[in-house]
């Protein structure tokens, strides 16, 4: 059983108890993905699985067999930052930084979901395919990612700058 992590094939562990989170951090040496609550409540462990944001703490590594995982290490590097990473720095979208990799992976997933018309709890017209990423939409769609430093305003600013159209921010 194997998985593609940030473009490279990797062998999955024999013990099915290993979570995708522990597999990434402890077996592959990719500590960017963070362990917060380890029970699906905080979003710090968010990664992209076949492009969809998921919680790696509640995913068994074996469930990723044959699939494609992208972590923060696969989105950008210090020398070649992802546009969202630049925007998080520009807008003070973090303080301690612990939740940041999860926030950024989550926001990348958010953009894909909104782009294909996935509604949210605050979407007014369910029949519309065209989602305007207002601050209210971004806050709701990022509600699975907690920041205990309280950097949420900067986080919403960074996502708005990166993904929202001029129409949504007017």
């Amino acid at each position: 059983m194997s998985v593609i992590v940030n473009g490279s094939p990797r062998e999955l562990p024999d013990d099915p108890r290993v979570s995708l989170l522990d597999f990434l951090r402890e077996r592959l040496g990719l500590p960017g993905t963070k362990k917060g609550c380890d029970q699906g409540a905080c979003g710090a462990c968010t990664v992209l699985l076949d492009g969809e944001r998921v919680l790696s703490c509640l995913t068994l590594a074996v469930q990723a067999d044959g699939r494609d995982v992208t972590t923060i290490e696969g989105l950008g590097t210090p020398g070649d930052q992802h546009p969202l990473q630049k925007a998080f720095i520009a807008h003070d979208g973090f303080q301690c930084g612990y939740c940041t990799p999860g926030q950024i992976c989550s926001a990348v997933g958010l953009a894909a979901e909104a782009g294909r018309g996935v509604p949210s709890h605050v979407t007014g017209d369910l029949t519309s395919e065209d989602i305007a990423l207002t601050r209210e939409e971004i806050r709701e769609r990022m509600s699975g990612n907690l920041c205990r430093c309280g950097a949420h305003n900067g986080i919403v600013d960074a996502i708005t700058e990166t993904y929202a159209s001029a129409e949504a921010t007017a």
Partner: peptide, 19 residues
């Protein structure tokens, strides 16, 4: 069936709904 779409997006978080 908008009641079903509304109930789904009222539940959990986007990451959990993807799983």
């Amino acid at each position: 069936y908008p009641v079903l779409a509304r109930a789904l997006v009222a539940g959990a978080s986007p990451q959990i709904r993807n799983m």
